[in-house]
Simulated scan of single mutants.
Amino acid sequence: MFVETQEEEPEIKIPLPRVGITNLRTIAKINWKGRVYTFIPTFEITIDLPREKKGIHMSRLVESITDAMSEAVEEEVRKIHTSLEDLALAVIERLEKKHKHKRAEVWIRTTLILERRTPASNKISYEPYDVEVGVIKENGEIRKVLKVKVIGNTACPHALANNQGKTHIQRAIGELEIVTDFRNDIALEDMIEVVESSFSSPTYTLLKTPDENAVVRRMYDNPKFVEDVAREILIKARNRFPGKIHVKVISNESIHKHDVIAEAWA
C-alpha cells in the first residue's frame, strides 16, 4: 500500500486555479484534410486544485495524454477533418476519468508546415508556422484559444516618399489570437492566410533570383507601417472569425537599434 500524500490537507489552505505539467513533448498524429500528419507538439495540462488537497497526481495527467493519443488517433483517422483542438479535448475527456476537477486546460504548441508556391519560378516551398491551441473546460462550458505566428516583410512608406523612391525593409512578425466557443470552426491555415496577406510581402524559405526580384518589387509596390499591418490583420480577422481577437505585430527594424510594436484587440 502506498501513501497518497496528494490527498492530505495542506498546511496553507488556498485553492490553486492551475496546477499541472508543462513543456511535455510527445508525438501526435492528425488526420488533416484527408492526410495524416505527424507532429511533435509541446503540451501543457492543468487542472484546478481545491483548498483541501495538498497536490495533484502528476502521473495521471501524463497518462491522460498517452491514452488520448492512442484513442484519438484510431478515432480521428476515420474522419475527413480533425484538428489539434479535437485532440486537446480528447485529453481533457480522458483526464476527467482519472482526476477530479472543475476546470481543466490543455495547451498544444507545435509547428505547422504548409506548402507554398514561390512567386516567379512557381517552385514548391515548405513554410513553417508556429501555432498554439488551447482548450479550456469549466463548469461544462468549453472554449478554445487559437494562436498563429507568421513572419513577413514590410517596406517603410515614409522613407519611400522622402528618399526618391528608395526605402528600408525589415522582417516583421505578426501574431493573431482568437478566443472562441469550441464549436466554432476556425482553421489555423485560414488565420495564417489573414496574417500573411497583410504584410508588404510574404517571406519564403526557398527563393530563386526571379523570386527574390518579385518579392522586392511587391514590397516596394505595397509599402506599409507596422501599424498598417496590425490594422489590416484586425479588420480581416474581425470580418472572418467569431470570437475575441488579439493582434500583435513586431517590426524588427533594419535602420534602428530598437524594434517597433503595434497591438490591438477586438
Rank of each mutant, 00 (worst) to 15 (best):
T46Q: 04
T46A: 12
T46E: 07
I47K: 08
I47M: 05
D48V: 00
D48G: 03
L49C: 07
L49G: 07
E52R: 04
E52Q: 11
K53E: 08
K53P: 03
K53H: 04
K53G: 02
K53A: 06
K54M: 10
I56K: 03
I56G: 01
H57R: 08
M58V: 15
M58Y: 15
S59W: 03
R60Y: 12
L61K: 01
L61V: 00
S64T: 04
S64D: 00
I65A: 03
T66K: 14
A68W: 09
M69T: 15
E74C: 10
E75A: 06
E75M: 05
E75F: 09
E76A: 13
V77P: 00
R78Q: 11
K79Y: 11
I80Y: 07
H81T: 11
T82I: 02
E85Y: 11
D86S: 12
D86T: 11
L87Y: 15
L87N: 12
A88S: 09
A90W: 13
I92F: 00
I92Y: 00
E93K: 14
E93Y: 05
R94G: 03
L95Y: 00
E96W: 08
K98F: 10
H99K: 07
H101M: 07
H101T: 06
A104K: 05
A104H: 05
E105S: 13
E105M: 13
V106G: 10
W107A: 15
I108C: 11
I108S: 09
R109E: 15
T110D: 04
T111S: 14
L114Y: 00
L114R: 09
L114S: 02
T118F: 11
P119W: 08
A120Q: 12
N122Q: 11
K123L: 13
K123M: 11
K123P: 00
S125V: 06
E127R: 05
Y129W: 04
D130V: 13
V131L: 07
V133I: 13
V133T: 13
V133E: 04
G134Y: 01
G134K: 10
V135N: 03
V135K: 02
I136C: 10
I136S: 11
K137Q: 04
K137W: 01
E141S: 06
E141M: 01
E141N: 04
I142H: 02
I142C: 08
R143C: 04
K144E: 09
V145T: 15
K147A: 06
V148L: 04
I151M: 05
I151L: 10
I151K: 13
I151P: 00
G152V: 06
G152Q: 09
G152K: 09
N153T: 13
N153P: 02
T154P: 03
T154M: 03
C156W: 07
P157L: 09
H158A: 15
A159C: 14
